[in-house]
């Protein structure tokens, strides 16, 4: 990849103390993520992929090691700095969508748009994800796939440099899941956002520029995909 380093993780270890047990969720992990790439982090549950994602996304801090975002050290950042980072630089897409039930589709997107100085147009983004016609609906009136599209619109409207997706197809059926992946791929191509997808579904790897395979808290394999395929052609 020819892009600049957007994320630089060096020797990141994360240990949790759960009651009387210490769990090492990440062990001295290092990873470079480049601007504009679409990366898939693959691994079974308990492999540490979510922990890695949380640290990249500024929801958690490493126990040891360093995390840089365009050279800004996040590993020692306080709550305020992390909130600013999440607010201005990161867009999140979750497995369970997590839309605000009391806000309409458009309002959910606007809620995120309010956070940044130069957001994209909520309406245009909704058109982009194919939800413009249902702008005034409430989340309870939408299907899972539709909710996820709104969630993507909500993440994208801030025009973040980093889009983080945690099992975005995890609660969706096959066809809907594929639609969501196409959307993410389109955003990566057209807006140039760096997209990181965390999944346990190996089929998704086919669409990534690079794949980090994780197991037992470590990246065991880093695969470069020279010919990513379009999500429409992925099957699982």
């Amino acid at each position: 990849m020819g892009g600049k380093e957007i994320i630089n993780l060096t020797g990141v270890t994360k240990t949790y103390i759960m009651g009387e047990v210490t769990v090492e969720a990440l062990k001295e992990t290092s990873l470079l993520i480049y601007e504009g790439e679409l990366m898939v982090i693959l691994g079974p549950s308990g492999s540490g992929k979510s922990t890695l994602l949380n640290i990249i996304g500024g929801m958690d801090s490493p126990t040891l090691g360093e995390v840089y975002f365009f050279g800004e050290n996040l590993s020692r950042a306080g709550e305020k700095q992390l909130t600013r980072y999440r607010r201005e630089e990161v867009g999140f897409v979750f497995q369970f969508f997590n839309l605000i039930p009391d806000l309409t589709v458009k309002e959910n997107v606007e809620l995120a748009a309010h956070l940044v100085a130069k957001p994209l147009s909520a309406k245009e983004v909704l058109e982009e994800v194919g939800m413009a016609e249902r702008m005034d609906h409430f989340p309870s009136q939408l299907s899972g796939g539709e909710q996820q599209r709104v969630a993507i619109a909500r993440a994208v409207v801030k025009n973040p440099r980093l889009l983080i997706c945690d099992e975005p197809t995890g609660s969706l059926d096959y066809l809907t899941g594929r639609l969501i992946l196409s959307l993410l791929s389109k955003i990566n191509r057209e807006l140039g956002s760096t997209v990181i997808i965390v999944t346990h579904n190996a089929s998704i790897c086919a669409m990534a520029h690079r794949v980090a395979r994780m197991s037992s808290g470590m990246i065991v394999e880093l695969i470069e995909n020279t010919a990513p395929v379009s999500p429409e052609r992925i099957e699982w």
Binding site: R84, R87, V90, F92, N98, I100, P101, K158
Partner: peptide, 14 residues
């Protein structure tokens, strides 16, 4: 709770 957490994650302050 979930709403609050979502908002916190997308960058809303406490």
């Amino acid at each position: 709770k979930r709403e609050m957490a979502s908002l916190r994650v997308i960058g809303y302050r406490v």
